[in-house]
């Protein structure tokens, strides 16, 4: 450890294909950011600084999905340099919104957008980090909840398990006193299978949950899809409901593909 840095744990932030929204939640911490800076060493955060300390890092935070050959190699290096590897956000944990291309021909995308596609070196799929290397913890959300990030870093510094909910958005809806949209309005709400973390904002404004936080612990999306069908939703619409920001998570993928085949 550097003599000028004392023994502070080193944190590094790595970006792959993403919108930057999750890593910016570090800056969202505002006043707590100053506390964080006192507690840890931000060793690698190119968005904020060109200072780059060498690994190994105590905590590596990874944002974004793996979409190029170069990414696939780089994530191996990131894993080797990070004692604890945490993926943050829907892109890193589930491939992100860009994983919608996994069901389409990526060559067609490139030809549509670029006159000289020979510059583009891309993988056919946008995949989560865990498909490439072992991941120690996944922080869900599109974007993540910044308080979860504080809790996670705090827990890791203290050497305890982070206290982050694994139950569904329904619990948050009940706490908020929302009327259930699935029951009262027959809307295709993903709340029952989606992990809590957002505070059930959308249902509070009469909008069905669209699954930003991805599948909860032990969800039953097949049963939920059956429920949507009983409410009169078509297979195509059910498929689409499960194909948003966490489309490539295996729990949602399984049910969307099953509906696509029908």
């Amino acid at each position: 450890m550097n003599s000028d840095t004392g023994m502070k744990p080193k944190i590094a932030i790595f970006k792959f294909a993403s919108c930057d929204g999750c890593q910016l939640s570090l800056l969202e911490l505002e006043d707590s950011l100053l506390d964080l800076v006192n507690a840890v060493e931000i060793a690698y955060f190119p968005e904020a600084s060109r200072r780059m300390l060498k690994g190994p890092y105590d905590i590596g935070l990874v944002e974004g999905s793996i979409t190029t050959h170069h990414d696939a190699e780089r994530i191996q290096r990131v894993r080797r340099e990070s004692k604890t590897l945490v993926t943050i956000g829907a892109c890193a944990t589930a491939g992100g919104i860009q994983a919608l291309r996994n069901w389409k021909d990526v060559g067609e995308f490139v030809r549509f957008v670029y006159a000289k596609p020979d510059f583009i070196s891309t993988l056919k799929m946008s995949t989560p980090v865990a498909e490439h290397v072992p991941v120690d913890f996944e922080l869900r959300g599109c974007p993540i909840n910044k308080l979860h990030l504080v809790e996670l870093i705090g827990a890791m510094l203290a050497g305890r398990k982070p206290n982050i909910p694994t139950y569904s958005v329904c619990m948050e809806c009940k706490r908020r006193g929302n009327v259930c949209l699935a029951v009262s309005a027959s809307l295709p709400c993903l709340g029952p299978v989606t992990q809590a973390g957002c505070g059930a904002i959308c249902p509070a404004y009469h909008r069905a949950c669209y699954g930003c936080f991805g599948p909860m612990e032990n969800p039953n999306p097949t049963a939920l899809a059956g429920r949507f069908e009983a409410q009169g939703h078509a297979d195509r619409d059910i498929m689409r409901a499960f194909r948003m920001f966490n489309a490539w998570s295996w729990q949602f993928r399984q049910v969307s593909e099953e509906r696509e085949r029908r």
Binding site: A17, T68, D71, Q98, R101, V113, R240
Partner: peptide, 22 residues
């Protein structure tokens, strides 16, 4: 610049009212 996300293509077929969120 070196990667593809592909919003213009993978949104094909989605209802227009999903476009703001996507």
């Amino acid at each position: 610049v070196t990667q593809v996300r592909g919003f213009e293509k993978f949104t094909e077929g989605r209802p227009y009212y999903e476009m703001p969120a996507i």
